[in-house]
Design a protein around this nucleic acid. Structure first.
Ligand SMILES: Nc1ncnc2c1ncn2[C@@H]1O[C@H](COP(=O)(O)OP(=O)(O)OP(=O)(O)O)[C@@H](O)[C@H]1O
Length: 695
DNA sequence: GGTCCACGTCTTTTT
DNA sequence: GACGTGGACC
């Protein structure tokens, strides 16, 4: 059975580092407030505290305390927000000397995917070979569905439809009294009315698209990311025996970053905690930055209503940042009108230098300045992996900042890692290879067929469709019998058939590994027109490197679960000492560095222009009556979410914080300083040092 | 009728 | 970088 214990998997961490550590029960020292969290191990608890006050540390200590009290590992579920965070947790627990084998540590998606895998037969239409489709293919499917509909409907963009459908499914208030698909359709209506009013006229259409999309996924024996959550909730809500099994299995459930849970995730937790109330939630509503993805900080605010007699633990001492950095953070976040209370963060570190702001001509100059600063810091003895450059987006004014900055850093001889951006497993060449694996392991997946057939010479969209129709209608018939136009197409199909037959035989053998399929894949892939691209070799090398990393993992396991863990490199618990970090602010959540640069502190970048536009579109917050269902909305103002993002960025810094902004885009359009800077200047002109001759 | 190829357009944040 | 489009080519 697949296990979440990554100790046997290659991608999670380097186990050799912890072999010599002896079990030490008091590795984590806690202050008086933090100790409250482990004094009560049972019952509902909410740890609600600001940035850098030790929430993650306390959560870790609580898990350790449970283990010290002989709670079996398989009775603990620890939910983290990212795979990086779960790898970090595992790493630290093992480093403390604990055997965590059997513990369920993972993201909601990981955990739901596992519940689904153990109960997939409850979803009629799925068979055991079902695999995961990535967002790229989801969009393709939706595009196909829209194309197949009435021409008058074509104004709706597939990406918009997908965004709305995904949001609606994550925001669904699932009521088992109604049919599953009806629940989602209600949600689509609600979501469009409240959040996407521009698409009001498409409500019926999007519901129809969703229904088709749902049926097509099942027909192809695939699930998307949202299905993991939504199906797990469906199973737990409609099968009381299964629900009870999991409720009994998990004596303790702990959830980190609770402010960013969505309705489906919160409902799942509530249903798993009906009789057993051992639930610990940890978070900070001021760090809610995923409302755009249907997360609702109302769940953390409403937690004490959802769970009676919740013990609330407040942590008020900041152990991370200098008083100067904390001052800037508070001066910013207090501009959010909709918030629970004044932030409390009492500094413990000694005074440090004032955070700086500097103005540059454009983003290229900003990055040049940052690269130079980083070089100086390293010259002065700072370890590279204690330095990070954060940005709202990796793509600014059509400049890939990780590429530009990366080049500059390398010219100083500094290496770097990138957090954020497109998932490696969602890039074209890797998806092409995965599609090939799907033809072997999940041949019902016509999305994979469509993708792969299109790569072959002589085969375009039409021949691919024809082939797929034959596969669906006459699955027993060999693909070589299909009549296609052109000798090229025929030859391609002939070759594909031979390669696949051989590959399927290889797949039956017990010692098979992913690398065995690289050569057959390349035999076909090098024939495609892609092989003429300049970077084809680079792509193939990256593919080979990726396969090498994944090679120890059973292929079906990869297709079933692991590809959702994405970017194996960037998820490693530890960044090598000699690498600096380039990251989106979203990916920086929960992390900390001595030196933090924030690039692009401009209006339209941070806050992002889409949020500025949306601000005027979104409906008023809704107050629901049944508070025990935790539906209190505290904010859906996109600008406030951007401000929280800015706050998260600032509070990542321990000692040095440097912000940069530009006068204009490289194209010459003027840019203005971020309102988040100006408003701090209004209340506290001394919060930042202006570090530029140009002021 | 269908595929190939060069060129122009647009690019938030993520499990 | 990935996708759509229009015109050349098989
Ligand atoms: N009692 C303590 N004594 C010393 N250092 C501590 C203590 N508690 C926390 N720290 C340190 O403070 C820093 C922040 O802790 P942690 O990451 O757990 O905070 P957090 O509340 O999860 O922050 P955020 O919400 O910003 O992610 C870490 O470096 C941690 O080691």
């Amino acid at each position: 059975m697949a296990s979440f214990d990554d100790s046997k998997k290659p991608v999670a961490f380097d186990k050799s580092m912890v072999n010599n550590v002896k079990k030490n029960q008091s590795v984590v020292s806690l202050d008086a407030e933090q100790t409250q969290a482990i004094r009560n191990l049972d019952g509902p608890m909410l740890i609600l505290a600001s940035a850098g006050t030790g929430k993650t540390r306390t959560l870790m200590a609580k898990v350790a305390a449970l283990l010290d009290n002989s709670v079996p590992t398989n009775e603990i579920m620890l939910v983290t927000f990212t795979n990086k965070a779960s790898n970090e947790m595992k790493f630290r627990l093992i480093a403390m000397g604990y055997d965590i084998h059997g513990m369920w540590i993972g993201t909601f998606h990981n955990i739901c995917n596992r519940i689904l895998r153990e109960n997939y037969s409850k979803i009629s239409g799925l068979n055991s070979r079902y695999t995961i489709i990535m967002p790229d293919d989801c969009r393709k499917l939706i595009k196909l569905i829209i194309k197949g509909m009435e021409p008058e409907d074509t104004e709706l963009k597939p990406d918009d439809a997908f965004e709305i459908i995904s949001f609606a499914r994550n925001a669904m208030q699932y009521d088992p009294a109604h049919k599953f698909l009806d629940n989602i359709e209600y949600s689509i209506t609600d979501v469009i009315e409240q959040k996407f009013p521009k698409h009001q006229k498409y409500i019926k259409l999007i519901q129809k698209i969703h229904r088709k999309y749902h049926i097509m996924k099942l027909g192809n024996n695939v699930i998307d990311f949202d299905d993991m959550l939504v199906y797990a909730l469906y199973i737990i809500s409609t099968d009381e025996a299964v629900r009870q099994k999991y409720e009994r299995q998990f004596e303790y459930i702990l959830v980190d970053e609770y402010q960013d849970t969505n309705n489906v995730q919160a409902a799942l937790i509530r249903r798993l905690r009906k009789n057993n109330t051992n639930i610990t939630a940890v978070g900070d509503e001021a760090q809610a930055i995923y409302e755009w993805r249907a997360a609702t900080p109302g769940h953390i605010i409403g937690f004490p209503y959802a769970f009676e007699e919740t013990k609330i633990v407040n942590l008020t001492t900041n152990y991370r940042s200098t008083p100067q950095i904390i001052n800037a953070a508070i001066a910013s976040i207090n501009h959010n009108i909709i918030r629970v209370e004044e932030k409390q963060m009492n500094a413990t570190l000694d005074d440090g230098e004032l955070p700086t702001v500097s103005l540059h001509r454009n983003i290229y100059d900003e990055l040049e300045y940052i690269a130079n600063q980083i070089y100086t810091h390293i010259q002065n003895g700072t370890t590279p992996n204690k330095i990070a450059v954060l940005a709202r987006t990796l793509q600014m004014s059509r400049v890939g900042i990780h590429h530009v900055l990366g080049r500059q850093l390398l010219s100083y001889g500094i290496q770097y890692v990138v957090f954020g951006g497109k998932d490696l497993f969602d890039t074209k060449h890797i998806r092409d290879f995965i599609a090939f694996l799907e033809l072997i392991y999940n041949p019902m997946n016509m999305i994979a067929w469509e993708r792969f057939l299109g790569i072959l010479p002589g085969i375009g969209p039409k021949s691919a469709r024809t082939t797929i129709l034959h596969l669906q209608n006459e699955p027993e018939k060999s693909i070589t019998e299909i009549k296609l136009k052109g000798a090229k197409a025929k030859a391609s199909i002939e070759l594909l058939n031979n390669v696949l037959t051989e590959a399927r035989t290889r797949a039956q053998q017990p010692d098979v590994s992913m690398m065995d399929f690289l050569e057959p894949f390349l035999e076909l892939y090098t024939l495609s027109s892609l092989a003429k691209d300049d970077d084809f070799i680079v792509r193939v090398n990256e593919l080979e490197e990726t396969i090498q990393e994944l090679n120890d993992m059973p292929i079906d396991e990869f297709l079933h679960e692991v590809q959702l863990k994405g970017k194996s490199k960037a998820n490693k618990a530890n960044v090598p000492d000699d690498h600096v970090i380039i990251s989106t602010i979203h990916q920086a959540k929960g992390l900390e560095w001595d030196v933090v640069h924030i690039a692009g502190c401009n209006e339209n970048i941070l806050p992002h222009y889409r949020s500025i536009m949306e601000e005027n579109v979104v409906a008023e917050p809704v107050e629901h009556e049944n508070k025990d269902e935790s539906e209190i909305m505290i904010s859906n103002n996109p600008i406030e979410e951007e401000r929280r993002l800015f706050y998260v960025a600032i509070t990542r810094a321990k000692k040095v914080l440097k912000l940069t902004m530009s006068e204009s885009t490289p194209q010459g359009d003027p840019l203005f300083p971020s309102r988040f800077l100006l408003e701090i200047y209004d209340v506290d002109p001394g919060a930042f040092k202006l570090d530029s001759d140009d002021f």
